[in-house]
Design a protein around this nucleic acid. Sequence first.
DNA 1: CATGCCGGGTC
DNA 2: GACCCGGCATG
Length: 485
Amino acid sequence: MESKYIFEKSSVGTGVGVADFHYRTGRSVLLDSRVPVVVEKNGSVMPAYAQGPVFYKFVMDGGSAAEVKGERTWSSGKGNGRILPDMEKAGLGDQKDTGSSGILKRTSPTPCPGVTRSLPGSFMNLDIRNPGKQAELASNFRAAQGQSVPQAERQPLSSSHIPVPRNRNPSGHADKEVMAATVLTSLSTSPLVLHPSAAPPVPEPASKTWKEVLSASYSSSTSGNWSWDASDQSVPSTPSPPLSNDANKNFLLSSQGDDVSEDVTESTHFMFEDPIPRKRKNSMKVMFKCLWKNCEKVLSTSSGIQRHIRTVHLGRNSDSDYSDGEEDFYYSEIEVNMDSLTEGLSSLTPTSPTTAGPPPVFPPPLSDVARSEHISVNGSQSHTSSLLSQSAPSTLCHIRTDHAYQGPVAHVRTVSIGEKRQPAASTHTTVNKNHAVITPAAKSTPGTRKPRGEAKKCRKVYGMEKRDMWCTACRWKKACQRFTD
DNA sequence: CATGCCGGGTC
DNA sequence: GACCCGGCATG
């Protein structure tokens, strides 16, 4: 599976670009990607529920408008759910587009002045012909963001769906690209593939292009507009990462500093030790979860997860300091309520409702959709359940039906949740490392032992003298298959 | 203590 | 995979 981004340009003053309207929980707006939004002149965002291509229209005065068409096509490729390549490829011959895509994919809701300057008029191909309105537009956007704006410029806005950092430099050069970038970045930006059919991505050299632009742009940026305003609570459902400017710098530049062992230790660290970073409320922790298919890696630092992705999934040299930021696409931030998690763990008995959900068998890897739903919810409980459901059940809920002595028996016992045994750890990977960590008692807990049945077994019925009449299981000192309970 | 059977070992 | 058995949990 391969996601494609198509960049188009209109020749009539309206720029038609394609934005990836995925959202990335914790990084950008929680805006359903299927919901088109029309950004009116006053900065308000109007949901326009419709199917098909998503148009983002920036209505300027005089009828001038900039439309952004969000279109996402999913072609069944080679099983690689890579986001982007095409967008980047498309931009190869056009550094502007490339840069734009880079920004968009960069998931920052704030415009990067450096990029803007270096890419004049290119952002999302917006063609806004009335420069005089730029300042006004800028103000409107700021107003929409709840920024400090002259009262006269304030207007009633419904900006709750598009949180944009408030700490923009008010004196900065707010041109139309910046405006467009602000909105568009808020609307799209997420590299996270939430599409259920998305499959693991594959690194491509093309991604380097925008990254380079991005890096260069960043280095030229001095306004620090890349930071998120962690205090911005305007979007309750968006656990926006409280990345500071420095953190953002590190975000790009420092993903090489950690030891390789960090990956191994961090999950443990996250579970039982003091949280390293970003402890928001009392017990809320921001973790970074690898979104690579079948990979549930959760680390406590962005650098760690980036390293993990870069080395494990992208197959890049772990020693290399070079990071093109592509890793960023493949992990997401999640909030973890440690209190709830602790509670969940403490009650993580075999019959705990937390793990013994309606379906007795838990699919080891959650689908991308399921995962996305989990992490997109700001509620701490959901995060907890998400973690638990992803880490614990895969091992806890194995159904034991594979014993050879059960073969000749007509009916195969279905072992209940409380009866399951611990499978061989070797068959599980990263997920179960975490599981082993967070449920250390599972293996040693005798509570999982099957309760003795009430019915008399072969031994009792036939006695030792007629042992040959016992069922096979009884002869092998296994659970009797003849006289089941 | 008898029983049931898990977990692991041997072939 | 078939078979065996030490040892633990349970009643």
